[in-house]
């Protein structure tokens, strides 16, 4: 057998065998991986829109996904918005819940971030950051409180808090929310968010 044909045969068979192995593994793990992703999203939806019984994806584009949340009686109780924006180091992916008319933000949670540990990474911390995002009035554009307030009571309903020393991370979270809200308003006008009353 000539050398070149041997080379072709060896490479082909190595490729074929590993291809077969990988597709088996792929099929075996596919469902579980999809399930993990779905569980993560569902958990986040339940966190940001409390009382969610079922949810469905209403709209999807790059960096913005909208889920409609319904309670046991199949009443729309709000939207869970999955959005991402640029942080201090890398993308920040977050999710927040709003009421059906987008005038109120229930809660915010951070899904992925690579901010500076100990500083910007505090955006995932409930006491330092997330509690200041609970039940905000978004009928007017939200603003950032600088310097930081100590407790949620000090803030007006239109204000969210800064993390001391991590203004940029706090700002980018706010901007992501603000931009996605604007986008949502226009989507709603176009009637792309389902036929809610």
């Amino acid at each position: 057998m000539s050398l070149s044909s041997r080379m072709v045969i060896v490479l082909t068979s190595v490729g074929l065998i590993s291809g077969a192995l990988l597709s088996t593994v792929g099929i075996l793990t596919k469902e579980r991986i999809a399930l993990n992703k779905q569980l993560e999203i569902e958990n986040a939806i339940i966190t940001v829109v409390q009382g969610t019984h079922t949810s469905e994806k209403l709209y999807e584009e790059k960096d913005l996904v909208v889920y409609g949340s319904k309670d046991e009686n199949n009443q729309l109780i709000g939207f869970a918005v999955y959005a991402s924006g640029t942080g201090f180091q890398d993308k920040i992916i977050l999710m927040y819940g709003t009421n059906p008319s987008f005038t109120k933000i229930y809660r915010l949670t951070i899904l992925e971030q690579k901010e500076t540990p100990g500083l910007g990474a505090k955006i995932t911390d409930k006491d330092a950051f997330l509690q200041f995002w609970e039940n905000k009035d978004s009928s007017k554009p939200l603003t950032l409180r600088k310097p930081a307030a100590r407790s949620p009571e000090e803030l007006s309903p239109f204000e969210v808090n800064t993390i001391t020393g991590a203004t940029i991370s706090s700002e980018s979270v706010l901007n992501t929310v603000r931009l996605s809200l604007e986008k949502l308003m226009s989507l709603k006008k176009e009637g792309k968010l389902g036929n809610e009353e």
């Binding site: 080379m7 490479l11 192995l21 990988l22 593994v25 793990t29 991986i33 993990n36």
Partner: peptide
């Protein structure tokens, strides 16, 4: 054959790496 050894090794290694990657994603997300 000596001439294609690196290519073959990489295919073998990549196979096991992908398996490990899928396994981790499935069971330790």
């Amino acid at each position: 054959p000596n001439q294609v050894r690196i290519a073959s090794y990489i295919v073998v290694i990549a196979t096991f790496v992908t398996m490990a990657d899928r396994f981790l994603a499935a069971f330790f997300p």
